[in-house]
Amino acid sequence: MAAAAAAGAGPEMVRGQVFDVGPRYTNLSYIGEGAYGMVCSAYDNVNKVRVAIKKISPFEHQTYCQRTLREIKILLRFRHENIIGINDIIRAPTIEQMKDVYIVQDLMETDLYKLLKTQHLSNDHICYFLYQILRGLKYIHSANVLHRDLKPSNLLLNTTCDLKICDFGLARVADPDHDHTGFLTEYVATRWYRAPEIMLNSKGYTKSIDIWSVGCILAEMLSNRPIFPGKHYLDQLNHILGILGSPSQEDLNCIINLKARNYLLSLPHKNKVPWNRLFPNADSKALDLLDKMLTFNPHKRIEVEQALAHPYLEQYYDPSDEPIAEAPFKFDMELDDLPKEKLKELIFEETARFQPGYRS
C-alpha cells in the first residue's frame, strides 16, 4: 500500500510507478496490472468513496492506442447498470505532455475469474450472474457493438453480487458484411471463450460470437473449470467437437473457408456428449439454455433477447427493466489503419471533457 500523499506533496508512487492523480484522489492501494497499465484503488475526496484507477501508458504502440481509444469512446457513450462506466479521466493539459491516461471507475471487490478459483456457486448465484451478463449484453448488442472478449476476468463483482462487464478494448461495431482481413492475426481474445466460426472463417462476425462466450462462462460457473481449455488453435476446435459432436452437413455448409471445411470433413465422426453427463448436478433449465448458447452453427445460436426470456431466468426476466441503447454506435473511421500519432490526438480530444474549465 502506498503511503497517503500529504496535501501538495506531488504524485504518489505505487510499486515504483508514478500515479499522478492528486489532489482529488489519494490513499492509493495496488490492485493489479494488465498488459499496459496498473490498477489501484484510491480515495475520492470529492465523492467520499474509494474508486478504481487504471493507469494506461499506450502511446508507444499502435495496438494499445487503438484499444484505449475504443474503450474510452464506447464506455463514455454507454450507460447501463451492468456495464462499468467511466467516472473521470485524468491526463496532462497538453498533448505533448500526455504520456499516461488515468481512467477512474467504480471500485468492484472482485471478478468472476477470482471468485470461481475459490468458491463453488449455488444455482441461485449462477442464475443471477447469468441474468446480469445477458442484461448488459442486450444493451451492448442493441448499440450494434460486439464485445468480443467476454470471459470471467472481464466480469466485475461486488459483495452485493452486482455484476458489471468491463474491458471493451477489443470491441467492434457489428459488421457481418465487412471482410476484416487479418482478423485472426489481430484477434487476441482469450482462445477458450472463442466461437468456432472465428477459427473457421475470417469473413465478418456477428453478435452470436458473444453468446458463445457467455455459454462458455455459464459452463464454467457450473463446474469451476473452463469447458474448452484448448492449448492452441486446432486443439481448441477438437475440444469443442469432442463435446458438441461432429457438425451436420448443414452446419458445414455455413463454413465459407474450404480449407477449414475440408479439415472438419477429414475428422472421424464424434457423438455429442449429453450435458447432464458433463454437469450431473446442474439445473435442467440451465443445461437447456447452455445447449442453445453453445450451438456450433452461429445462425442457430440463441440471441440475447431470447436467452433473457428463457425459463431458467424467469424469476428475473423483465423486458421493461432491460434497457437498450438510445442509438446504434458508430465509429467515424476504422481505427485499425491509423498511425499511433493520430490515435493519440483522438484520445486527447475524447478525454477533453474531463479537463478543468472544459467548454463543449
Rank of each mutant, 00 (worst) to 15 (best):
H141S: 07
L222P: 10
S266I: 08
A189Y: 08
R301V: 06
S213H: 05
T351V: 04
T160I: 12
F59V: 11
E322A: 15
D88Y: 15
A9L: 05
N224F: 11
D235R: 09
D179A: 15
F331S: 08
P196F: 05
D44L: 09
D111N: 13
Q249L: 14
Y113R: 11
L234Q: 14
L130K: 02
D162E: 15
N257A: 06
G136N: 01
Q105R: 09
R225F: 03
A195T: 10
R194G: 13
G169F: 03
G230M: 00
N262S: 08
K300G: 11
L290P: 14
S41F: 05
E220Y: 05
L343F: 04
R50P: 07
E33M: 00
M293A: 07
R225W: 01
C254V: 04
L155C: 02
G245Y: 03
K285W: 07
W212F: 12
R353L: 12
E60W: 08
A35Y: 07
M221K: 14
L346H: 11
A143I: 06
S246I: 12
Y30P: 02
G169V: 14
L289K: 05
L294H: 04
A309R: 06
G242H: 09
H232S: 00
G204H: 12
V214W: 06
M221L: 15
S122H: 05
L28E: 04
C127S: 15
A2F: 05
E250D: 13
L69R: 01
D20T: 11
L289R: 02
G169D: 12
A260N: 01
I165Y: 09
V49A: 04
P196W: 11
L155I: 02
F183N: 10
G215E: 14
M98G: 06
V18L: 13
T206G: 08
H147F: 05
L338K: 10
M221C: 05
N82E: 12
C127D: 06
A309V: 02
N201R: 07
V273K: 01
D88V: 09
H239G: 10
R50H: 07
P328C: 03
Y113L: 09
T94A: 05
N238L: 13
L267D: 00
N238F: 09
V214S: 13
E349N: 01
L264E: 02
K73M: 14
A219D: 07
T94Y: 05
T190E: 12
E303K: 13
G22M: 07
T351K: 06
L121E: 10
G169Q: 07
T110G: 06
R15K: 14
L155S: 02
N154E: 12
T118Q: 07
C166M: 01
I103D: 06
I227L: 12
S223R: 14
L346C: 10
G245Q: 12
K55I: 14
L252Y: 07
K330H: 01
K330P: 02
D88F: 00
K55T: 03
M98A: 06
G245L: 11
E250V: 10
D321C: 06
D235M: 08
H61M: 01
P280F: 12
D177E: 14
I347A: 07
I211C: 12
N27I: 15
A286N: 00
S213L: 05
R15D: 07
R225T: 01
D336I: 01
Y25D: 03
R50E: 12
G245T: 00
Y312I: 07
K203G: 12
R15Q: 13
W192R: 15
L241H: 03
G85V: 14
A327N: 00
C65H: 04
I90V: 06
I227D: 01
D318Y: 14
V101C: 07
R77L: 15
A92E: 00
N281G: 02
D124H: 09
G22D: 03
G85L: 04
P93R: 06
L157I: 11
M293E: 02
R194Q: 12
H141T: 05
I211R: 13
G245F: 04
C40G: 01
P356W: 00
I165A: 10
L264T: 05
L290V: 03
G169R: 02
G245W: 07
K259C: 05
P356T: 10
N27G: 12
L28W: 09
P274H: 12
S29T: 01
R15I: 12
Q315W: 00
V188R: 12
F183Q: 08
L338Q: 15
L150H: 06
R24N: 05
L287S: 10
P226H: 15
G34I: 04
I165D: 08
L130M: 14
P280H: 15
I53T: 00
T181K: 06
R135I: 01
A3E: 05
G242S: 10
L156E: 11
K138M: 10
L137H: 12
N281K: 13
T63P: 13
D251P: 02
L107F: 09
S266Y: 03
I243T: 02
P328I: 04
F228A: 00
P311R: 05
Y312V: 08
K164D: 07
H125T: 09
F59L: 15
S29Y: 02
I255P: 03
D283C: 01
P152T: 13
H141Q: 11
N262H: 07
N257H: 07
E341V: 13
I240A: 04
Y139E: 12
M221G: 04
E349M: 02
I56D: 09
R148S: 12
G230Q: 00
V273D: 00
L290R: 11
R191L: 15
A260V: 08
R79H: 09
I31V: 01
L69T: 03
S202V: 13
S284L: 12
G136I: 01
A42Q: 01
A327S: 12
P298A: 04
F354R: 10
P328H: 14
K48L: 12
P58Y: 01
M221W: 06
Q17V: 10
A5K: 10
G16D: 06
R194D: 05
R359K: 14
E33H: 02
D167I: 01
A286V: 02
G37A: 11
L252P: 13
K272T: 02
E220A: 12
I256V: 12
A2H: 08
I243N: 10
K259F: 07
P319C: 09
A4L: 12
Y233D: 14
I211P: 10
I227R: 06
D124L: 06
L69Y: 04
E341W: 00
W275T: 11
M13S: 12
S41V: 01
E197P: 08
E314N: 00
M108V: 04
Y317F: 15
N253W: 10
K270S: 04
L267R: 01
Q249C: 05
E349W: 00
A2V: 00
S202I: 13
F296W: 03
G357I: 00
Q66D: 07
N87K: 15
N87H: 08
R67V: 05
R91A: 03
L237F: 09
F59C: 11
H125F: 06
R79K: 13
L287M: 15
E96D: 12
L241F: 11
W275E: 04
L234S: 13
L157W: 09
N281P: 00
A282I: 01
Y131L: 06
C216E: 12
V49L: 13
G8R: 08
L346A: 11
D162A: 08
Y312L: 13
I217R: 07
K231A: 03
F354M: 14
I31K: 03
I140A: 11
R225A: 07
F19Y: 15
M108H: 04
L234K: 08
I84S: 02
E60G: 07
V104Q: 11
K99W: 00
D106S: 03
D20V: 14
Q119Y: 07
E250Q: 01
L112Q: 15
P152R: 09
P11L: 14
E60Q: 08
I95C: 04
K330Y: 00
G37I: 11
P280I: 10
D88Q: 07
P152I: 01
R148V: 12
H120K: 11
E109W: 03
F348A: 08
E305N: 03
A325C: 03
Y128I: 08
A189G: 05
R359S: 15
V39M: 09
I83F: 15
H178V: 12
R91Y: 01
P274K: 06
K151S: 01
T63D: 07
K99P: 08
V46T: 01
A325D: 00
L134I: 08
R77G: 03
H299G: 08
K342Y: 06
K272F: 04
E326S: 01
R277E: 09
K203V: 13
Y131R: 04
V39W: 04
L290C: 04
E96G: 01
D235A: 09
K114I: 15
R194E: 14
L75F: 02
K340P: 07
L222R: 07
I84W: 03
E109Y: 03
M293H: 08
N123T: 05
E305F: 04
M333N: 11
A143E: 09
E345A: 01
H178F: 11
T351H: 01
Y233N: 15
E96W: 03
I31Y: 01
L150K: 05
M293S: 03
V104Y: 04
H310I: 05
Q306P: 04
D162Y: 14
